[in-house]
Design a protein around this nucleic acid. Structure first.
Lengths: 197, 197, 197, 197
DNA sequence: AATGAATGAGATTTCATTCAT
DNA sequence: GATGAATGAAATCTCATTCAT
């Protein structure tokens, strides 16, 4: 008699993958890619070191999976922004808050870690390169242009504006590591000024 | 030919130390603390792997020395800002440009790497902690208050303003890794808006 | 429906043991002793990884059991040879064919794998040593002497002749791994020449 | 002042490689491919575990290098056989002795280990496959045909004859592991009978 | 009894540090 | 002083064995 049916097993399998990915994302985001040891991920997930190899062939594969997830997450966030209500400024403020939110923050931190590290698997580099060419810029540019047209955002090359905006977010996320949780969420408005008229 | 005299030897010794520190700073700043291997530093400095051990007891000691240097450098930059000519805004703009300058950038990047990493020697953590309590804030706060008094800087807790300002700088420095050299220097004015009225 | 009675359970138990031993023998013989992973045996037997531990305490115990079986099988084959009809040469040809037969081959291959590997449990080494002192030589020597007396086998130390004969069999069995199934059975006559006049 | 010139360094480098290869060949040949641990190779070579990684990227790369060497060695031995003096039988006897000689034996044993194991890197499998298609058969076949023409070798498909010949050699080499050193060299004549009329 | 997820000891591999030259 | 080969501790990864279901 099989103890569990196939669907339940799949369920467990997926749960484990989610559990490991969650733990790994947090550790990778906080301790950097090379600074992350498998033992740390295992400890964070509350499992043994060997177990993650049942679900991910290697540390590298796990990392790549997480980067893919993060890039998709980022893309989704950028896409959604246009469907939000309100003025461009309000939309951007929402996006910013969501990026800094605990449930999303690690994705963006991981992207930052991966982008700023040269010790990243080749596959991950390709993903990042593809992403940086394709996505976020294309998707937020209309918002920025609209913001400029409406006189909410300051003038100038919208790409440069976008670049500055992301610098700020990046800085905040990294700074935050040693600051109080959620402390800086209230600072978003301050930061919005970078792109405001 | 007579061997070098003591002073000349000291001279060489100091040159070597400078050479190694310069190389190590660059590599640590760019590749992160754990991502930096002794072999990378040796390659960057153009020396053999073993040689740095004649000048620094360990990778950790070298790192701590660099962090100390960086913190002193940072402190000096903060102190100087008050002696600069011009309004608070002009002073801060100068400081910002200097921090992002090639000759200083790596110091601030190293501080950032050290602050955001949990994989740092205990000694370094203490230095950072001491630094974050003591220094830059105390030194720039008067500048910020003066800026607010003059109506150049926006209102609110000057500490928070300072925090945001550093977030932005941090973000820019890290972003820069994949951007064009010197590209963003021109964006400083944009970023200044964070603290401007 | 009533549960199975004791005899039926025993029956099942024995069937399982046979099933696992058969699978393990094949895999050990083909992939070598260290090259064999428990997961391979389980896959070959069509059971789960954990199940063999209900029947054998360890991989080592399973291996030792198989080596014992193989040695007994070999001994039995050697003993039977004298009861076969025909001349010494005909008897030996029969033995050879039987050793190379699919149903026996793996036993002899396992003996070969175990003998030529130094990575074998101590217990197994003892069995092999005991076997190599006691058995096959004693049993086939009369056959060889008879063959020499009848002028069918070539002259010389019958032990050496025997050793060469087994070298040939061993070589054939191992060669076979990459040759066509049953291809070489037809070559037996060729190989018989080693011991023929 | 550099302690050694470049040529001397190269010399040392080559010596180390030879040392490691020699040790590894012996261990791989005797204990099988999976049965060989890096620690065993290091012990045999009298070096630390880590050192072999200075010269070979991985256990797999070391193995592949050895298989290449072995295949080349085998090819060279086959090619030379035609230039030896004497009748086909005498030539083949020479080849056989040389293959079983201590200085060559391990190469052929490794080829045997690699061929009979399924646990071999893909690259090695390709090498072996290529070798088994290309080389020894082509090179020895003329010798066998000549031997048959002269009435020294027995009739039949020369390829089958060759196959049997190699089975015998293989068997001898493996058997030898537990036999006395050099004992069996005297048995070569006995084995030659396989292919003799 | 049976499964296959989970563990942990042991293997491979990396790299900071030492050492012979 | 300088080199880079060598070491060994710590990381990654594998797999025999155990265990919850």
């Amino acid at each position: 008699m099989a103890p569990l049916n196939e669907q339940q097993l799949d369920q467990l399998h997926i749960q484990r993958i989610v559990q490991i990915k969650k733990a790994a994302l947090k550790v990778f985001a906080n301790r950097g890619i090379i600074g992350t040891k498998i033992s740390m991920i295992a400890a964070e997930a509350g499992i043994s070191q060997g177990l993650s190899y049942r679900y991910f062939k290697s540390k590298e594969e796990l990392l790549i999976t997480l980067i893919q997830d993060a890039l998709e997450e980022a893309k989704a966030a950028m896409e959604q922004v246009n469907h939000l209500p309100g003025t461009p400024l309000e939309k951007l403020r929402s996006l910013t808050k969501s990026m800094l939110d605990d449930s999303n923050k690690y994705f963006f931190m991981l992207i930052q870690q991966a982008s700023s590290s040269e010790e990243v698997p080749e596959k991950a580099k390709q993903l990042l390169e593809q992403f940086s060419k394709e996505n976020p810029i294309q998707l937020l540019i209309p918002l920025f242009i609209e913001g400029q047209r409406m006189g909410q955002f300051c003038e100038g090359d919208p790409y440069k504006l976008l670049f500055c905006y992301f610098s700020v977010i990046t800085g905040l996320m990294l700074q935050e590591v040693q600051a109080d949780e959620n402390y800086w969420v209230h600072e978003v408005d301050l930061l919005m000024k970078v792109i405001m008229k």
